[in-house]
Every structure is written in C-alpha cells, then in structure tokens.
Amino acid sequence: MQLLELSKKYGIAVITISLFLILSFTTEGFFTERNIRNLLDQQSTILIAASFMTIVIISGNFDISISAIFVVAPLFALNIENATGNILLSVLGGVGLGIILGSFNALVVTYFKVNSFIATLATSFMFFGFGYLISDRSLMRPVTDSYQQIARTKFFDITSATWISLVVVIVASILLTRTRFGRNVFATGGNQEAARLAGINVPQVQAITFILLGAAAALAGIVNSSRSISAQPSDDFSFVFAVLTAVIVGGTSIMGGKGAIWRTVAAAFFLAFMNNGFNLLQVDPLWQRIILGLVIVIAVALDSWSQRKNV
C-alpha cells in the first residue's frame, strides 16, 4: 500500500531519472554538454505553455486554442517590431494579445458555459484566421537584430529561452502550490459544487486560468519565433498536442482536481529524452511514433486504474 502510494506519487520522476541515467551510460553523445543544452533549449516553449496548461487542466478544463495563440502572437509581435523597432513593446504587445485571446476563451467557457474543449477548438479557427489576417498570409521576419536575442542571448552558457522557461515554471509552481488561487484551482477541479459552497467564485477562478495560459502560449510563440528569426501563419495544431502529452503523461488527471507542475516538467523531459535517445540510437521514426503512442496509453490507463482503486 505504502509502496504503491509512493510509486504513484513520484513514479514519473523516478522513470525520468532512470531513463536519463540509462541513456547517459549506454548512448554515446547523450550526456554531453551540447546535447543537454540543446534539449533544454528545445523544451523551453513546451514548458512555458505546459506549466499553465497544467493549471487549466487541474481546474477541470481544456484549452485547445494554445496552438493558434502560439501562431498568432508572434505575428502580432513582429508587426509591432516591424513598425516601431522596439523589442519591449513588441513582446508586451504579443503577450497582451495572448491575454486578450485567453480572456475571450474565458468568456465563452465561463459566461456562455460552453464545454471548454469545444469552445477552444472553435476559437482556434478564429485565432488561426487572425494570423493570416495580420501577416497578409505570408512569412514575417524581424527588422532588428535584437529580436532574435529574446531567445538566443546566453547567460552562463545557457540560452535565454531556457532561462525564461525556468522562470515561468517557477512562477506557475508557486502560484499553484503557495497561493490561495492555487488552492481554489484544485478545489474547483476536484468538486465544483463543494467549491461553490466553500465560497469560491468558480467562474472567476476558471477565467483566470485561461487568461494566464493565453499569456504563456503567446510568450512561447514569441520565444519560438525569436529562435527561428521568423513567424508564419498556419493551421498547425501540433503544439497543443505536444503540450497536452507532457501534462497527461505527467499524471495530471484529465478529470481535474489532481496534478502538479513538477510532474509536467518531469514528463516533458521524459518525452524529450526518449525522443533524443531514439534519434541517437537511430531508431526508425516509424517505431518512435508507435512507442510514443503506447507510452501515452499506458500513462492514461494507469491514471484511470488508480482512480478506480480509490473508490
């Protein structure tokens, strides 16, 4: 019982560390400074969005539209950058747009009471459309050299993208574990009726989670565009699935009320290590997919199984 509890609680961390150690000892080129630095840099955008996605899912909702915010926010930021050449203004503008789009999601979900999955699927199309609208359907590039410095500046040999993701993860963790808002998020996702009777403003809590995630997704998009020195309108949903995979494999319950940001972080690295290991070992990408899918199925099945044991 106690062992079961412990493995349930820290399982994902143990698995991630084990995989790290195994790859370090068995796979050439894995435990090198360059490879690890690259891994950290690559995971930064996922981590920024996944931290706040974890909060949204704990509160009992979903947000599909982060892919679209991830696409449209950097286009908006580059519009400002192209017009003014001011980096600070462009970042604030991009994140501001994320806040506005997040607020729109919040409005649809909490005021019009539309199921969050459907609501954010619908708003995704709108937001993707805005992307084409503000970019004139074409690729955009920054006019200043400093735009690429947002993600590429190095402190202690580590990219600013990694530093930004670290700060975001810490802020989100503190918010979730050390504030009243965090407790209200768990309560809202765990039992809405009980939360209401405990005096919690449930719609307000849910709205804040969407707004914060909107801002985080926008920031992730800007970091991504700074890294690639360009941004392009698209209908690409893949970002949200990468983020959701990390959250769910981490063991945050899709039913709400349970989860942690450190779990999401651990799972994001577990998936990154797995992917990286496959590449270094030259596993056929075909098998990579099949194994990745299997891992997600196992993670979700374990969660559902452990729920059943408790009733």
């Binding site: 209200n184 768990f186 309560a187 039992n191 009726e193 009980a194 405990a198 009320g257 349970k258």
Partner: peptide, 21 residues
C-alpha cells in the same frame, strides 16, 4: 461526497479552504 469534500485532497486543504485568507 458531492457537496462537501474534495476526496482526493488532503485533510489540511479540505479544512482550511474557505478561510485561506
């Protein structure tokens, strides 16, 4: 069960929730 408790959370979180202020 349906109106009072957050079954999957700890005693401490269940008890202090309305009075975190």
């Amino acid at each position: 069960r349906t109106q009072g408790l957050f079954l999957a959370r700890s005693l401490i979180e269940n008890i202090s929730l309305p009075y975190l202020g």
